[in-house]
Amino acid sequence: MKTLSISTFIIFAAMLTGCVQKSRTVTVNLKLYVTGIKNIKQVGVRGEGNPLSSDKDLVMQPVIKDSIYTVSFNTVTGYNFLECKFAIDDKVELKGQPNRRIDFVDKDTMSYEAKYQVPGKIN
């Protein structure tokens, strides 16, 4: 009886793994244009979901110092969007405003270009 119960539990548990939302890997390419700020030490992006964090930068690399920064990363998600904000020297943009939203319905690669402190994308 005990063996039957354990077997039933394992079969039931295995069945339920099919009831988990499908997730996929999405590649996100971000480019940020900055104007009017000099001697920038660090530019990053913050958000929810690995590898993003709401309190720690995913560091962006300078293409042109104090002007253009980029980062590419892969995220595993079941959602069709990602929310983020950019940060320069620990100052997070768009204070009191909604996060930037990057939609990637039916896409496995998404490029998003934006200007610092300006809501919405520019491409």
Partner: peptide, 30 residues
């Protein structure tokens, strides 16, 4: 926005549950 089908558990929740360890790590989806 959650993109969930009927009676489907969110993709991130089994990962959270697995971190509890023990029997939760053995059957996180369940």
């Amino acid at each position: 926005d959650a993109n969930l089908h009927f009676f489907e558990v969110a993709f991130w929740f089994p990962n959270d549950v697995a971190h509890y360890g023990g029997i939760f790590a053995m059957f996180p989806a369940f």
